[in-house]
Structure formats: structure tokens, C-alpha cells
């Protein structure tokens, strides 16, 4: 594959992070967020290395989705810093200093999000959904962006659906389009917000397999998920979020099999033995 191949994760800028894995790509320090009187994130610190996969687990309302949304600027944190570093478009913003709209936009430009409910544009075909970002927003040449988009759709098995509208697709197909739409933005960081929670059980496997493939290829990702098996298999690191803080984090084997914290144990217990 050529260096600009969209299916390949972005490479480090020259001279930066030549050793590859272990070099931080995302750093979050002291992230805080309140909604009214409700303190959703109290102080979140995260580091995700280039090519690493971080899984965020925790119960609904724990703040894990809010972390993800802050990374993409869909929510603006009240304090803390978020940096995407070690790439040619490194950005770092200090949320306490009321970041400018341009600062937030540059942060958002480096990441792309896959939503729980896909959020495809219903009035656009599959191909139009994928091209909206690269062509309309990033103003890249149409021919080049189209060729890339078609290659990606081919890869996820949806080349024949290029002219279909989202309502004509199954949930699993829609979510694969959602993933291609995110990849088409050529982000440094992929964010997945419970990407299989809205799918029928028999459709979950295909989508998880695709995310695993992307992880194996070296994409850097943060995945909010309830799929513990998936987290164990794909994530390099698992973080358990509860009450707006990261209670515990570490390799999946440790956090999921031998959690140190009582709260983590309780959560895993409830998830694995719901009855």
C-alpha cells in the first residue's frame, strides 16, 4: 500500500516517534466537565500511544461517553488539557483558558468518531455520506476522494451499496458506512462510541471484526464498549470509568481478570452475571 493509502493509518511525521508503538499520540490531563450542578468528569488523565487501542468501560452515566465526546469537541471540557501530539498536525489545547473555536476545530480535525446510532445522513447515498467530509469540508479533489471512498467501501463489502440510501441498509451495514465515513477524514485518532450497542446480536460480529482489523493495522483508537470479550482481545489498555474518574487502568488481562479496585470488581461481576 502506498504511504497515502487511506486504509493505512497515518504514519508519524519525519523524525518523530520512529520507534512507533509506545510513543504517545493522545494525552489528556485533568479533564473536567460539569453539566449544571452535575459533575460528570472530575479529573480524567489518559495517554494513548500511537497505534494503541484504549477501551473505556463502565456503567451508563459513568462519564465514559463524555470523555469521548470531549476528545472530539462535541462537548467542551471545563478544565484540563487535550493534546494530539507526535503528528505533523500536533495540537494541544488548554480548556481552562476558554479555547478558541479554531482551536477546538483543529482538535476535532485530528479525530473522527463512530456513533452508537450511526448518525448517517439519511438524505445522502452511501457514497455521498463518505465523501461529504473529504470533498465538502476538506475540499480534496473529487476524483481522488471518490477513488479512496470506493476502495474503502469495497473493503468493507459495501461497494454494491454505493448508491443506496441509509434506510435501505441493515444496522451492521450502516455502521460499516459510519466507520468508512470516519476513515475518509484521514484522522490520527479513531473514536468509537459503543459502536455495536444498537445492533441486532447477529450483526455485532462483523462490525467488531472490522474494528479489530483496523486495530491490527495500527490505527490508534479509543473505544467505549460493553463488549468485554472484544476489549480483552483488541485493546492494549482498558480503563474503568466510574463517577467521572478513571478508577483503574492497565492491560486487559489485569483489569478484566484481576481488578485491583473493589468498584471494578463489582462492575465486572454485574456485567458477567446479570442474573
Amino acid at each position: 500500500m502506498s504511504p497515502t493509502d487511506p486504509l493505512e493509518p497515518p504514519r508519524p511525521a519525519d523524525g518523530v516517534g520512529a520507534v512507533g508503538q509506545g510513543v504517545p499520540l493522545l494525552t489528556v490531563r485533568g479533564l473536567r466537565k460539569t453539566f449544571g450542578a452535575n459533575e460528570v468528569l472530575r479529573s480524567v488523565d489518559l495517554t494513548v500511544g500511537r497505534g494503541q487501542v484504549l477501551a473505556l468501560i463502565g456503567q451508563s452515566g459513568s462519564g465514559k461517553t463524555t470523555v469521548l465526546r470531549c476528545l472530539n469537541g462535541l462537548e467542551v471540557g471545563d478544565a484540563g488539557t487535550i493534546g494530539i501530539v507526535g503528528t505533523e498536525h500536533a495540537v494541544s489545547i488548554d480548556l481552562a483558558a476558554a479555547p478558541s473555536r479554531a482551536g477546538l476545530a483543529s482538535l476535532r480535525d485530528r479525530s473522527a468518531m463512530v456513533f452508537q446510532h450511526y448518525n448517517l445522513f439519511p438524505h445522502m447515498t452511501v457514497l455521498e455520506n463518505v465523501l461529504e467530509g473529504p470533498v465538502v469540508v476538506q475540499r480534496r479533489p473529487v476524483a481522488e476522494a471518490t477513488a479512496e471512498a470506493l476502495a474503502m467501501l469495497e473493503r468493507v463489502g459495501l461497494a454494491d451499496k454505493r448508491d443506496a440510501y441509509p434506510f435501505e441498509l441493515s444496522g451492521g451495514q450502516q455502521q460499516r458506512v459510519g466507520i468508512v465515513r470516519a476513515l475518509a477524514l484521514r484522522p490520527d485518532l479513531l473514536l468509537f462510541d459503543e459502536p455495536t450497542s444498537a445492533l441486532d446480536p447477529e450483526l455485532v460480529g462483523d462490525v467488531l471484526a472490522l474494528i479489530k482489523e483496523l486495530a491490527d493495522e495500527g490505527w490508534t483508537m479509543v473505544v467505549v464498549t460493553h463488549e468485554l470479550h472484544f476489549a480483552r482481545e483488541v485493546a492494549d489498555e482498558v480503563a474503568f470509568v466510574d463517577g467521572g474518574v478513571i478508577v483503574e487502568h492497565g492491560p486487559p488481562e489485569q483489569v478484566l481478570r484481576a481488578p485491583r479496585e473493589e468498584r471494578t470488581r463489582q462492575f465486572l461481576h454485574r456485567l458477567l452475571r446479570p442474573f
Binding site: N72, G73, L74, A105, R108, D109, A112, M113, F115, H117, N119, L120, F121, P122, H123, E132, G133, V136, V137, Q138, R181, A182, L185
Partner: peptide, 25 residues
């Protein structure tokens, strides 16, 4: 609301999101 969020996610401004995503719907 998810339509606004998807539009912002791909890098649209509020104005562009309105024109391309929200108003057609």
C-alpha cells in the same frame, strides 16, 4: 441531534451543517 453531531464530527461549521445536513432534512 445526532445529525448535528455527525456534521460537526466531519468538520462542518454550524452554517455548513445547516445548509448541507439540517435544512435538507
Amino acid at each position: 441531534k445526532g445529525q448535528w453531531e455527525a456534521a460537526y464530527m466531519i468538520g462542518m461549521s454550524r452554517r455548513l451543517a445547516l445548509r448541507r445536513v439540517i435544512l435538507p432534512q
